[in-house]
Amino acid sequence: MSFKLTRCLIILIICGSNFMISKSVFALTDNTNWKPQIVEKMYILPPKQLNRVLNNDFKSSSLAAILNNKDIKIKTRHHRIKELNNSILTFNGDEKIELQHQLIVEKRDYIRDMHQLLKMKKKELKIKKEFYKQIENKINIKNIVNKQNQNIFKKRDNIIKRVSILDDKIFDNLLISSGDKSKYSEAYTKNKNAIIKLKQAIDKHPMSNFNDKNNSPKNKINSIRNYIEDIETETAIIELKEEMLNYMVKLIALDAMNLAENISEITDDNNQVKNYNDPNDALEFFIN
């Protein structure tokens, strides 16, 4: 009897603590950290490759490792809850109460782990969003600077075109007639031919047209803004899931209260005491 009372008390404690779970904050460990390193080359990568680089960086972080572990833990709990649900149907009496108690505890732990998982997912999304915002700001600044320097870029391109036609003429008129060539002019001729061949190879490459199309400043900004929008959508979905968890917590509290109620009814039935202090019971002693 005292054991059953103790169990009843434990269930009531669970019931009380479950109300607090819905409002409490689960602290994350200090190891849940991810700091994507922004290097200069990221600003010139096409958006798709940039996204891939970021995801790979995340996969090698401690946050991803802990997320994966938590995910596996939740799957195990999910499986146990399913087993307990099936087992409850086949038992009666004290064993059934014991299994119901275990089920409530398991569900509580499941919610706690799920809450932590969602928090870590939100952290991952927040860091990704900050990263893309930084890239977007840098691209915007670069576009403003480029707009101001557009004139000089055009002039330089025109000069390069004019000068590239003159290379043969320079070689014939100047370098051959002078007899001696400087170190730079020898290296220039050699490397220029190599650069022309490399440029031709780049133009023929199947990925070069694809990258040019996706890497234009306007397309790049739009792609990055789309990524930011996707992240905000995912964050909103996680917040809906967190709300769902709150309702789950309330249901567990009600289950715990129900179990406590059932146990107290059983103990009341067993403890029924006959009242020997009624005068009607002693009447026969006084009449005769």
Partner: peptide, 24 residues
């Protein structure tokens, strides 16, 4: 003649220099 050859090299270096274009 010497200055011409030297100037040719300098002109080529300036045309191919991308750094001076960034913040001209």
């Amino acid at each position: 003649k010497n200055f011409k050859l030297k100037l040719l090299d300098n002109e080529r270096i300036v045309i191919n220099d991308k750094k001076i274009i960034q913040n001209p």
